[in-house]
């Protein structure tokens, strides 16, 4: 492996890693928001809404993200809606992860025992105050650690977007690989880059798991 080559492609990989981070952040925001909407929809008293949301979640979780990306990118295009690969990837990954996050929200809310709300009301709190100071703090303890873990997963899953040629790290690596013919070195470096991005995030998630686990949730 020549060091000159490395000096040529390393900066390009670093720039592409920026694309990965951007994609992750944008998709994550979509997932958090849509996931919450989904969770609320599933608790809706209108059966149609609840059932539809349930189907959506099952669909998203039962099919590969890659297939979903292909449907959004190619499928929409053939129907006349042309999206850039990056946008398609952000939307696709965001909607996919929203399904998983909705499950996390549901678990969090359900985990806080009904008695907690009743006890809060019994000492004279309003519903809103009960939600704010009793239920949500406990629910958050349950929700935050998995959400942090999903951030790490999402970061890694952006690699799949390379298969619809969305600009991120793996795509750049593949392009460079056909230019420089050194796949081993390239992909090892790429692996190291993902490590650098994902490992600290993963450690944060672990730390959150431990810290949040310390507070007791009455269930």
């Amino acid at each position: 492996m020549s060091w000159d080559d490395l000096r040529e492609w390393l900066p390009q990989l670093l720039a592409a890693a920026g694309g990965t981070l951007k994609m992750t952040a944008l998709a994550y925001v979509i997932a958090v928001v849509v996931g919450l909407l989904l969770a609320l929809a599933r608790r809706s008293r209108r059966r149609g809404v609840a059932v539809a949301a349930g189907w959506y979640v099952d669909l998203m979780r039962g099919t590969p993200a890659l297939t979903q990306l292909f449907l959004i990118y190619f499928g929409l295009a053939s129907a006349g809606i042309v999206l850039s690969a990056f946008v398609a990837a952000v939307i696709g990954l965001g909607l996919n992860y929203a399904a998983y996050m909705s499950e996390v929200y549901r678990a969090g809310i359900a985990a806080v025992h009904r008695g907690q709300r009743e006890a809060a009301l019994a000492i004279g709190m309003t519903n809103a105050l009960a939600m704010r100071s009793v239920i949500l703090p406990q629910a958050l303890r349950i929700i935050v650690p998995p959400m942090a873990n999903y951030a790490v997963s999402l970061l890694k899953d952006t690699s799949v977007a390379s298969l619809i040629s969305a600009p991120e790290l793996m795509l750049r690596a593949r392009d460079l690989s056909s230019e420089y013919f050194m796949p081993m070195e390239l992909y090892l470096v790429v692996g190291a880059m993902y490590l650098v991005m994902a490992y600290p995030l993963g450690k944060c998630a672990q730390y959150l798991e431990v810290r949040m686990g310390k507070g007791r949730v009455a269930s």
């Binding site: 890694k156 799949v160 390379s162 690596a173 593949r174 796949p183 993902y194 490590l195 994902a198 993963g202």
Partner: peptide, 23 residues
């Protein structure tokens, strides 16, 4: 655990399929 959980499986596949072929 820490290394192989931090790298996407796609990258790992590429290393095994393309990378090993190189050597």
């Amino acid at each position: 655990v820490d290394v192989f959980r931090a790298v996407p499986v796609l990258t790992q596949l590429f290393i095994i399929y393309f990378g090993l072929a190189e050597i």
